[in-house]
Amino acid sequence: MISVEHLTKYYGPFAAVNDISFEVAEGEILGFLGPNGAGKTTTMRILTGYMPPSSGRVIVAGCDIFKDSLEARRHISYLPETVPLYTDMSARTYLDFVGKIRALDGRKRKARIEEVAEETQITEFMDKLIGKLSKGQRQRVGLAQALLPDPDVLVLDEPTIGLDPRQIVETREVIRSLRGRHTVILSTHILPEVSMTCERVVIINRGKIVAIDTPENLQRRMQGADTVDVEVRGPAEAVQAALKAIPQVTDVRQRGNAPDNLVFSVDSEIGVDLRERLASTIVERGWGLRGLRPSTVSLEEVFVQLVTEEAPAA
């Protein structure tokens, strides 16, 4: 649905986006993750036809966003980072205006506005002036605007910024519900957001793509191994030695240092599940097995690692 090919954008001599390429399949939700200033907003602005790339191209729904801009824009809705609202209008007249520009006709427009208002939970303050709404309410009106034309492609720049925790959860719920119906690109610098809403992640730093994968695979790739955390009561050194002696175990690290409650991280080759072997080894020696679970490195760690690895190179 979206294909980005060798996109580069220079601001003067500075490359805000440097030769990035990726594809987004129809109905997919893609997370665009990076620290502030990584080039997320620039990429989104190019994707939506707001500014041209210095080189490279973007194809949306079969249309070149630069050469066939008007047609491409018919397929896209965009929620910029600064929510574009007219403070002297009510949410209803604002949505009505956007609906008119999107060529939604009379009754259909009205019905669609109600639908979208319901979905983004803005019904109660539809007739209040936007200038009088809170940050979170405005953000949701902005989201309603983006959903209104029922677009093939939704580009959301930091859609949950400025919302309170409950609204964040609700907004993510709305975004997740778009899966399959719309192709969504969502930028954020908040990690849990990506693992909660997206099927695939593009991690971008200093204008370059650092990694593209599913959240799960990224975690696995970062680890380079499968890890099991074992909680044991027993003599530390003996336990460590015994665990290390198990075939296919590549490393055993002791974490935590409680006297008779030890926690070890046991690495194995990828794809090997050692849990039963570990359990029987510990039980056979008469030590107390108190816990056994596969460890998951959070995406946050992945992210920090990716970004800090990249830093010295630049």
């Binding site: 036809g49 018919r74 910029p80 600064t82 929510v83 574009p84 007219y86 956007v98 060529a103 605007q145």
Partner: peptide, 11 residues
Amino acid sequence: TGTLELLLTQP
């Protein structure tokens, strides 16, 4: 206010 960004990305 940024509404120009909205208008210029509309069809």
